[in-house]
Design a protein around this nucleic acid. Sequence first.
DNA 1: CCTTGAATATCGGTG
DNA 2: CACCGATGTTCAAGG
Lengths: 259, 259
Amino acid sequence: MTQKKNVVEIIQYPSASEAKSFIEKHHLKKPEKTILQIIGSCTVDYRGRAKSVLDWGERFIIIKPDGNLMVHQPVLREPINWQPAGSTTEFRVDDELFIVYSRHRKPSEKMIISFKEIFSIVICELKDTAQLKIVGMESDVVNHIIKDPSCVEDGLRIHKQEKQVDSGMIDLFAYDKSHTPVIIEVKRSLATISNVHQLRMYVNDMRHESESANVRGILCAPRIPDMIKNLLLDYNLEWKKVEHEIVLPDDKQKTLTDF
Amino acid sequence: MTQKKNVVEIIQYPSASEAKSFIEKHHLKKPEKTILQIIGSCTVDYRGRAKSVLDWGERFIIIKPDGNLMVHQPVLREPINWQPAGSTTEFRVDDELFIVYSRHRKPSEKMIISFKEIFSIVICELKDTAQLKIVGMESDVVNHIIKDPSCVEDGLRIHKQEKQVDSGMIDLFAYDKSHTPVIIEVKRSLATISNVHQLRMYVNDMRHESESANVRGILCAPRIPDMIKNLLLDYNLEWKKVEHEIVLPDDKQKTLTDF
DNA sequence: CCTTGAATATCGGTG
DNA sequence: CACCGATGTTCAAGG
């Protein structure tokens, strides 16, 4: 791979003023197109939605064209400090220090990063037009339950998927072993209050419809906080923790499992 | 600043095999200490908690010593794809492609990143011992209300802060203009169902204590979802949206506001 | 180790 | 623009 085009510009161990010149030349002429990364020893001061001070340490910062700025330490997936999208960045030299100043409006947030030593600056222009992320997510809790209703309750028989009622669409409609109608509300991840109220409405609708006093409602999710359980108890509803199962429909999977 | 120590190693526009050699030399000898970054044109396949495919595009990936791997596009603060901490990474050459293979156990997650072109590889060893982040955050909704009770309700008089009752500590105890006792539960960010139940218990306690049927309960928070409002209505409680105010305790603030 | 709640959450969709 | 819900949330604290 030859260096046909200069996608990446790099400088190592620049002085503060060299860093400023380099950034002015390669980044500030088109900050909306280039990604800037600085590795070095710095402090970080932030004030905005919160307020924080980060003492001297070696870390790297990334500034994206959309204004996002991230300060990353050697550990954690999350940046230790950041500025949100829409921030504008300025670069200054102040008494041997190289200073990155980022500002955001509404909410007002400011950050100052002071470098006493810069190991490297990398500036690159990346084209990622095909940035669509296809999420062929088939962690179908619903299908999982349809395949094996006993994972919710013994003797459960699924009767209908996506049954329409007044308030909306019921995920699963079933009968238990005593032939009592059961409405099952399925949640892929965290169960919320909203789901409880939804389920409550569905159950109310069904009681109206079938004029049967006996309609059970079960909320199924991988994670159900205690508070949600209490709320369900208040409304005389039930819950069941169900793991989600990841289905692998297409052949791409082979590429992954090959290893 | 001279190049006393090689904190950063960089190679530009390597072939797949050159990339592999370079990473073996500078990263794989101490992957628990060095951060690896690759900029180039790649695809990403992921399977684990979900499943995703990302088509060709120019992006950069970061691999931290703790196993975190991030795939960043030119926009967004969040990586478009990632592997969690504890993942292990392998590097292979396959028919001109340079392949990064990351694997995680429990939950099982795999990722394949295939580079058809690499613009640069940066490997650095960062020391960030003083990584403590001081968060002197005092976004005092309580003080805000004490200073200006009318932000909750006209004619409200704050009587006591942190009043003890059986179930716990009441944030604010007040009287409205009709001299009715008012219990105010304050939340800094999102109001939750937990806060509703807490407030409900406090009000119950107060009714017992004062033997007054008239005790109001108001939940104050910057954000109160509709579902919480419904729940409050169910329990005959009230709410008020209040903005939070950020207090600035120490002098560091001057550095930031100077700009 | 599992569970729970907080976050400068971020991000996308909707009214 | 504000609000609301989802997230492969991540992360830290507590049992």
